[in-house]
Design a protein around this nucleic acid. Structure first.
Lengths: 341, 341
DNA sequence: CTGAAAGCGCTTACAG
DNA sequence: CTGAAAGCGCTTACAG
């Protein structure tokens, strides 16, 4: 019994019922008598029949697919996806599958004429957005998405008036934990490394936590210790190497991401500074490679499992018309060796 | 000018042409006068119109989507995707996008009733398969896929008579490079770590290279040094810790993957053996974390960019009816510190 | 260069 | 519980 591309009509013919009944039986409709349903499903199995998703989707106006749009920071051809986002993939795909959704992955560049297409073309029922590059430019796109009634959830950043649902780590608390820890270890000249401008609101929040921790100890932000860097290992290296060569004194670095923290450690080591002896370093994210860095990196862990599952639950909730609220996950300080504890 | 879900019919009405002409214009058919085409495309843009993929796919019997099926080795809920596969994602997604294909990602378990569904349901035009667990069981699934006329490409393993196209690294050469390097450094009791049985043909090939290198030096495989482990850091640790505690003598480890190599290094360090002083270690894959291991891991690099792009080119070639040949990429020994060079 | 028409393979309201 | 029928929104062979 072999048909090249069996349709529900073929099955109907074999089963001696109407095509409508086949459709119902395959969707487990209670309208179909159990005996009939089982007979039909058995035939479908034998024929290797699967419902044509395009036809079903056209009819129901649903794709049962989530588009995962990852902001692609790479200029060149050779660079890798941000490993932090990569580490969420498994959780996202798994929980989507558990809810009956496929995941379509796409790397987006800021310049792209964006996102709206996915839902408008019925390729996806909703979007998960990871990363963005520059929030100021990104925000305009979010507004356009909302305008077009696209369903989307955002990871990482919530700013007043921002449209849509978002899920992120409590970055203020994370920054607070990292900085307090360094202060408790006696460090006083703590560099904060990263782009903490409004172009990166979640880094800005980490800096808010940093500032609060300093103030708790009676210290103030020192402009000399606010060091800008792009979110790459290379730029973390460059920024810290630069700082050292300018003779600025500091005894700790709080890098707002692990990638920059790793670059910072290398820069310090190359400049002959001991980590953590001379300079304690704390990162943020707990990348898979963080335990392997030398010395192993102390960092603020974002709960990627909760994040991945939460993002999927949220977008599916939105798709299925449930009420969804933005929320935050709790960061957790993971003490290894780079801080000197 | 706002329509909730504009269709080609809406655009036709506005443009004063037939729906067929709209369809042609949007596909840049040369049949449509340029002026007409531009007018239609302008209207489409203004309306935020995008071709309904389900309708187009139903009609053309194509989805312009590739399914990326990643074998999911996780038993539990919490584990991560094999980082080696993860590191290919970017290249796969990017090159698929460049060719006009979307990528659907799905984690598959060996127990799943497999794969055939993706193409049969017209969700994807072809499959890329990464990983498999146990080749013996996997092979039966491949035969079923081929039987069902599914288009698929496989990463990593080619075995005689295996159906379909496959792309992989030249594992024999890789194993040869790793082992020769250790031999040149004077190591003589070289453990090979991993499941090198026929359940993992590409590990088996790496062992073939290992054996050849030994023979070149007048040595033979020593059964005591053939050490089985599952492909995880934990099991690499366990296997080497076990070996040490049994008092087996060895001065090097060639782990057939970096994950096991990392576990091996930790086991050695914990047992008081110096790496590379007492034992040199070489891995395979060059995971993103390999440079961060302490000591930085010497390993055989698989060219993941070439692999990712090659897989996409192959599956798209198959989909578009071109002739596609299986091929191999060249491995490259990356010397860091764990080998003692 | 353009239009009218058929049909891809489903789901579901309607009728029985 | 089941069937006949409409229609989702496209693409393309056919006719002009």
């Amino acid at each position: 019994m072999k048909l090249d591309n069996p349709t529900s009509r073929d099955i109907a013919e074999i089963a001696g019922v109407s095509q409508a009944t086949v459709s119902r039986a395959l969707r487990n409709s209670p309208l179909v008598r159990e005996e009939t349903r089982e007979r039909i499903q058995k035939i479908a199995r034998e024929l290797n029949y699967f419902v044509n998703r395009n036809a079903a989707g056209l009819r129901t106006r649903q794709s049962n697919t989530i588009a995962l749009l990852v902001f692609d920071e790479t200029e060149g051809r050779d660079a890798q996806i941000n490993p932090f986002f990569l580490s969420m993939f498994g959780y996202i795909t798994r929980s989507a599958a558990a809810l009956g959704y496929d995941v379509l992955v796409s790397l987006q560049q800021l310049s792209d004429d964006w996102h709206i297409e996915y839902q408008a073309s019925r390729r996806a029922d909703g979007l998960i957005l990871l990363g963005y590059g520059d929030y100021v430019k990104y925000r305009a796109k979010l507004d356009a998405l909302a305008e077009a009634n696209t369903r989307f959830v955002i990871y990482g950043v919530v700013v007043d008036g921002q449209p849509g649902y978002s899920l992120g780590c409590d970055n203020v608390t994370g920054g607070l934990q990292a900085t307090r820890h360094l202060l408790e270890l006696g460090r006083r000249r703590i560099v904060i490394l990263g782009d903490t401008s409004k172009r990166h609101p979640e880094f800005q929040s980490r800096r808010d936590g940093y500032r609060t921790a300093l103030q708790e100890t009676g210290l103030d932000e020192d402009p000399e210790l606010i060091v800008h860097a792009e979110n790459t290992e290379e730029d973390g290296y460059r920024a810290i190497a630069d700082l050292v060569s300018r003779g600025v004194e500091f005894d700790a670095v709080f890098a707002v991401t692990d990638m920059m923290a790793i670059g910072a450690i290398h820069a310090l080591t190359d400049a002959g500074r001991k980590v953590p002896g001379d300079v304690g370093v704390v990162g943020f994210d707990d990348l898979p490679r963080a335990p392997y860095v030398s010395p192993p990196l102390t960092t603020v862990r974002q709960n990627i499992r909760e994040a991945g599952e939460g993002l999927v639950n949220a977008i599916v909730g939105l798709i299925e018309g449930r009420d969804v609220k933005s929320s935050q996950t709790k960061p957790e300080l993971v003490v290894r060796e780079s801080c000197g504890a």
